[in-house]
Each structure stands twice: as structure tokens, then as C-alpha cells.
Design a protein around this nucleic acid. Sequence first.
RNA 1: GCGGGGAUACCCGAGUGGUCAAAGGGGCUAGGUUCAGGGCCUAGUGGUUUAGUACCUUCGUCGGUUCGAAUCCGACUCCCCGCACCA
Length: 949
Amino acid sequence: MDIEKLKGIEKKWQKKWKEAGIFEADVDKNKEKFFLAHAYPYPSGPTHHGHARAYLFDDAIARYKRMKGFNVLYPMGWHCTGNPAMIKAEKIRNGDEDTIEKLKEAGVPEEEVKKLKDPHKYVRFFATESDLSYKSCLETVGCSIDWRREFMTIDETYKKFIQWQYSRLKELGYVQQKEYPVIWCPEQEMPLGDNDVEDESQGAESEEYIAYKFRIEIDNEKILLPAATLRPETIYGVTNMFLNPNLDYVIAKLGNEKWLLSHDAYEKVKYQREDVSFVKEFSSEDIIGSYCENPVTEKDVIILPADFVKGSSATGVVMSVPAHAPYDHIAIEELRKQKDVLKKYGIGMEELDFDYISLIDLEGYGKYPAVEVAEEMDIKELDEERLEEATKEVYRKEFHQGTLKENTAYPGKRVDKIKKKVKEDMLARGLAEIYYDTSKPVLCKCGASGVIKLVDDQWFLKYSDREWKNKSLDLLERVKVIPKKYRKELNYYLDEWMGDKPCARKKTLGTELPFDKNWMVEPLSDSTIYMAYYTISKTINQENIDGEKLDSSVFDYIFWGKGNPENCKVKTGVLEDMRKEFLYWYPLDMRIAGTEHLSNHLSFMIFHHAALFNEVEWPKGVTIHGMVLDENGNKVSASKGNGYNMKEIAKGGMVDAMRLGMYAKSSPWDDIKFGKKEVDKTIENVSSRFQKLFKYVDLIDEASKETRDVLDRWILSKMQRHIKNTEDALDKLELMEAVNHAFYSAFNDIKDYVNKKENLNHDVFKDVIRTWIRILAPFTPHLCEELWEKTGGDGFVSEAEWPKVEEELIDETAEKGKELGDTIEEDVREIKDITGLDKPKEIKIIVSDDWKRDMKTAVQKNKELSELMKKNKFRKQGNSAVRYFQELKKEHEKERVISGKEELKALGEMKGHFEKLFQADVIIEKESESKEDKAVKSRPEKPAIVLKN
RNA sequence: GCGGGGAUACCCGAGUGGUCAAAGGGGCUAGGUUCAGGGCCUAGUGGUUUAGUACCUUCGUCGGUUCGAAUCCGACUCCCCGCACCA
């Protein structure tokens, strides 16, 4: 057999598997089921070997479980709802060259690219309909999927399933409508995600300011100065107000109140409230130098000029708290020096002579932390960057460690604990309003400036609901999380981090909310319990059930057993079948997803299962897979072009080599560095071993029959251990460990066996090879099918029974004997090195006497010297016995000691091998019968060795 | 900032109290397979040392617990990942 024959091997077996339908899973009450579901892929672009790795994890497990006798359900669907495909399609429609070029580079034929302007075509192309698609990728690498259950999330039938889910969640009170601030493009009138804004704007968030309404009278009219801050508690420390004399301000009517705002702020606030109208332009210079009233303390504070106040940030009205804000402190210091400015506004020096008001106690600082930090950092002027740093420092410390003083309404309270309450109190008293702004300026890719818009009819999933959270935590507690380290993180997300989540969007590919046709279900929110859909999608596909027939009563019956099947539009028998499938396959045994999905898909799955299903139907396992990085540590991705399309690898017939390499690289949940170069190298390396494997298989026929010697017994014993170790590793999902045992260790042993054995034992060798093929089958299925067939296996190896460990073949003595042989080889080599006796004519191996073995066993049992020396067999050895005793005391080994007879036998059986290896006569003798001086040096399992010329 | 994870020899990467100078792979070195190369095989790959031995130093840094630590505890330094309405 030649490695060349590997070409085409994948296709050959994939075709046979398909024809035989061996991965199609149906209800079988006589078999235990195993249901695993990988996160269904979002087909946004071409696939590569990075994708393959994630799914190969599942495949090995699915194949192993199948061989272990489980009825395995391994399905796949396509998550087509969402925006990226829509946006890409739109770009193609608009002739965006970059997008088109990238697709061509990735291998999309020119004439196809044009067709992808339709988002539905786009997702189909990358889901199933091309060599670049996910389906092609999964099929090419040999994933053992039941394709009859395939579906897309834009199928009418699936949409009905989603609508059922959302109706029921709403009935449970878990879906609610409320106000919500979004970053908004005023030009396009749509919310802006990070993908929609220029790079420098990415990461911008909506920030909730509290605007304190300072009061002033202008022309006998009460005007409010809304000073916006993120630190509501500092209202007690305000010494003055800052307005920018060079900025455009307006007076605007908000409800019944008149506010003074920067022009920019006025434009923004219109998106946050409906009752906003323009009154007039206003020059801040008219009131700089006058006083306004702090709404909380009711004290008057002076309005000072400040160039640094920006119109684009918050309201353009700034309250100054110099004791706790370095910026304010430095601004006042600066102003004190600017006599001409003060004079211009008629501000007397004495008016700047106010004391700072300290309101927060902070350990390690005096009354004015802001002043101290500014001094420490040696900030003397309005150096924006460094003041920003200082501000953060003060803010952080005061927030986490500070306590409010007597001059506030919250004396003794920790800032971090009371902040929220201060805000609520002030809002309740009508002294302040919420004002939203972006954390940094947002520039939309269309060129417009983003603003915060308050959407008032957004639908939310109420993940903040304590009862729901508790139920979900209860579910999590029963879930087996692999690897364990992610449980903590998951627990944190569920318990603390997750809040209400908007679950609907205006514009997206997907499903309408059943109770509000203005909204579509947001793409993450339709991927929560789809594993349940796999249990029925087979029937839906086969019976060609129309979406229209799937109203909520159908799902009520299938998933809850509620209602009367007679009243459903689906035929009763079919409905019963679906119900049976669901009951049989659920719960999900293993859910696989990437780490980035912990805080969304996986958490959502837990929440939604907790809400909608009985405890017995709750998912039982969550497993994380890692991703593939290239040699520079970058994620392998279609846009970077640093990945292989699987078809390229399949051409050489090397899919299995790549599979094995991937498994061996690291644990499935860890990231692996596996760039193109490394893929090439790995394939080269593994395939050379495959070559050897073929050679071994060919050897079987030439092998002769013999009685089983120590090497035969050893290799059989080792194979039992390899079975066991592989099995144990696979049960823990430790694929790397499993491959290390099943492939590398077994390979090394078999190689060793073949090298050392003079005449192969036909029976033994065949048995070994056939065991080997089976434990390798989950990893390299195509290759193993080929070899299985060649070695006369029945049917498919994919369906073969996982080899059972035959306890009676585990032979410790043979293992020890073989080890002994290895040690002797090593020792002889070493002695030759040291002595320079390069080609000894004779090698004497002197096996230690039995009293040494007895003493070793005795010492292992913690016997004392005095006790032992009472025995004749030790006493007659005299001093040698005492010295040996002391030597043994230093050892920690607790392994069984083999007898001198066993040792002699094993060595005898390997004598021929030694003679061949060293090209010398080998003499084996007992210590007591040897005339060599060195004989006394022999130890149990460590014979003395004498080389002679 | 919040939460989670990590630091192991030239490189990648196992290893959670003694059996650890530390798996496996790669690289490198030497020898062999006898004609070029590759492939394959064998051995070596912290240091000193020896008829097959023993000792010393080492697993981010500094301390601690222990008869004994890469492994446990504390502090520190550095790195990675997630922070949502987006798949």
C-alpha cells in the first residue's frame, strides 16, 4: 500500500458512509442516546481550517461515543439571521470594490460574486452552496453529521418556532418593553453598532449623566443651568460654575422649564426628549460674573469664564468641585492669574477667594485630594492629558474608598454604595434630570455625528429578574462544564453581569416578534433553544411541513405535551413522532461553543432553558473550544487570507493527517498556533507515520506464527493500556491526551516491537494492529476505514465496537521484562562510551540474587535492619546486606519486585535481540554463580553488566 | 475599571506535593541506512561527573508552608481573553 493511494480516500468513504446512512440518528429505545450540538455557524464568509478545528472536536467525540454503543445525534444548522451578511450583500449591490475583491481572492468565482448581492443568496452560498461554505468544510473533513436535520434560521418553520418561544416568554413576563438609550445616526435614522462607526469612535458607549438644575434669573425669568456630571454626590462641593464665553449657547424650552445649553447639547437633547423647543440664542458673557443657585445646598455660586468647556461634551454647563476634581482646581488657579479676564467680566479677586469644599473622606489624603494629586503629579496648567489621568486617579480612589462627610445628606456612607441612591433622590426631588451623551465623540461611517437617542418602545429580555437568574444558576449547577475553569466565569455572567437585554431590532434578517410586528427578533436572541429544534427538524424536512401549520399549539404539544393533538394543523401521527423524538433526544448532553460565547449564547441557552423547560430537559454539558491562530498569533480568518480551505488539503488526501495534527496540538479548549506553514509541516510529519502504518499492515500477511515471548506479551499488554488511556482521556474530552496515547505512544511501541522482534507473531501482530485501527478511528476515520477493510474488518470501523480492555492480557512481568531490556541496552551503550570498548566480543549480564529482592520487598514494607538481620539469608551476606539495606532506604519506589526467575526468563527471550544489536556474544548468568567481580553490583531489575574484548 | 485565565528548557507545549532534569512534538548535533538530496532508523540535547553512578542548578520575581514544591500559600511583575444588544 502506498501513501499515494490516500488521494481520494476521503471522498470514497464519505460516499460510502452517506449511502449507508450510518450517521443518521433515529429514535431507538434500546440504545442510550447521546446528543451533542455545536454552536451553529453564521455563514458570513468563506471557511478555512480554523473553522474545521472547532467542529473536529465534536466529530471525534461523536465518533467515539458511537463506537461505545451510544445512539449519537450530531446535527447541524445555519444561523442566517443577522446583519453582517446583509451588509456584505448591500456592499456588493453598491459595487464596493474592497468587498468584491476580497471575495474573489478567497476563491469566489467572478460570476458568482454578483449573485451575492441578495442577502439570502449570500447566506446560502456560504452556508451550503459552494466549496467555500461551512457545509462543504464540514463534509470535507468528514464530520459525522446527520444532515437530514439541517435547517436555516430564516426558514419559515424555524421562524414559527421562534415566535412560539417569544410568545411564551412574554406570557411568563420575561419580555418587556421599556425606554432605552442607543447610539444613533441622525442621518440614516438607525442605531450604530461598532461596525458602523469610524475606527476612532469604536468602543463609544452611552453614558448617563445627571444634570443638576442650577437656578439663575435673567430678565426676570427663571432660567436653569443644567450642570452635567457623572458624580452626583459632588453637588455638595460646588464652589462655582464654568461657562465658555466663546461658545454658542441657546435658551431652550424643555417642558415647562427654560434651560441654558450649548448649541450642540440642544441639538442632542432633542433626541432624548420630545418636548424641546428653541427660544433664543444666548451669549454666556451676559451672565459670567453673576451668581446662580445650587439647587441642593441652595447656596449661590459665581459663574466663571472657562475656555476649556466644550460644547460637544455633555451640556456645556460645568459645575466646579475643586476639592475633588483636579481639572476644576487647576482651572481656578489659572484664572486667578488672568487679571485682565477677571476685569473684563467685573470679577473681583476677593470673589475668587472662596474656600474649597471638602465632602469626601479619603484615607491617606487630606481635605483636598484633587489638590494633592495635582501637586504630586506636578500639574501646573491646563494640560488636558495629564489632568485626565489625575481625574481618573482621584475618581477611582474616591469611588472605591471614599466616604461622604457631614456636610452631605449621606454622612458616613461609602461613595460606591450610595452613588446610585444620591442620583435617585435628586431625580425624585426634581432637582436634576438624566442627560445622556456618548463616552467619546461618535463619527458614523456616513459622516454624520452620532447622538444618543432614547428609544421608548424597545423590547427587552428581563435577564435582571432575580427569580429567573436563580433558576438559571440552579441549572448551571447541574451542568458539567468542561473545562472546569469556565464555570466561575459563567456563574459570574449569570449571577451578576447580565442585565436586561434588548431582544429586538427594527432592521435585520430574521423573525418578527409575534406580538409587535414593528420589531424583529435580534439575531442572538433567536439562538437560545434551537437544540430542541434539531429533534424535530428531521420530521419537518421529511414531511415537508409548511411553516403555516406550525402555530404555537403545535410546539406546546411537542415540547410541553400540552393541548390536544387533534386540534393541531399537523397530522396527529406526525405530531406524535415529533413529540417522541423530542422526549427521546432531550436533554442536550453536550453543547460546544467558543469562549467568546460564554457571556451570550451559552448564558442565553441557560436562561431560556430554565424558563421554558422542565428540569429533566435542562442541558447537561457545556464545553468550550479554542480557536486557531497563525504563526504570528493572529486569529485565522477569511479576511486575512491566512487559512487553508479544506478542499485544498483534501486534494492531497491529507485530511486525516491534518485532523490528527490538530488534535495533538493542544487541548480542544486551548487556542493553537497552527498557521499554514505549520499545517504543511504537520501533514508531512504525520503522513510519514501513516506510511509506516501501511507498511505494518502489509507485514501482517508475512508474519509467522510463534509462541508468545516476552515482547509479544509486552505489546499486547501495552495495547490494553493504550485502549484504557485513550478511553479515559476521551471521557474527559482530552483529545490531545487521547491522541498521544492512541497514536504517538502506540506508534512508538509498535515500532519498537517490530524493530526488536526477529520474527513477528502473526496472531499477536494482527490483533495489535486491529486494536490500533479502532482506537484511532475517532481521529482519522477515513484512513482507518481503509485499513479496517484491508485487515478484514466487518462493516465500517465507524460502526465497530470500541475495543474492550482484556484484563488478562495486561502482563506486568512482561512489561518489566521489556523495560529491563531497554535499560540493558542503554547501560551497555553507556559503558561502551565510557570505557571505549567499542566492539566488545562478549557481554555478560549478571542477574542479582534473590536475597536482594527479598530485602527490597522487606524495605518497601518498612522493616527494620535489626529485624531483617535475624534471618539467615541476610545475615550470611554480612556487610553487603547492611550496605544494601542503607541504599534501599533512600528509595521511594513501591513497585512490585519481579523474581530472579522471571528476570532470567525475560532476558533469555531477548538474548537474540541483544546479540543482533550489539554484534557480540551475550551470556546471562546468576550473581551467585558468576565469577565476575562486578557481579555484586547487580540489583533487582538492574543486572550487572560486564563487557569483554 | 469589572470578571476570567496564564507565565515551564532553543521554540511549541504536557505536568497540580515525592516515581521530575521535567511527557510529546519541532529544531539542532552525532551516527547509521553505504553512492546526491530527502525520507527513514538510532542516540544525544542544563552543568559537572562515573564502567552503566552521584551531585549541583533550573519551571516569571521575591518570600513562606513542608522531611520534601514546577506543583500549596502570600506579595509582586508581565501577558492573554470577555465586557453585550454584535455574530
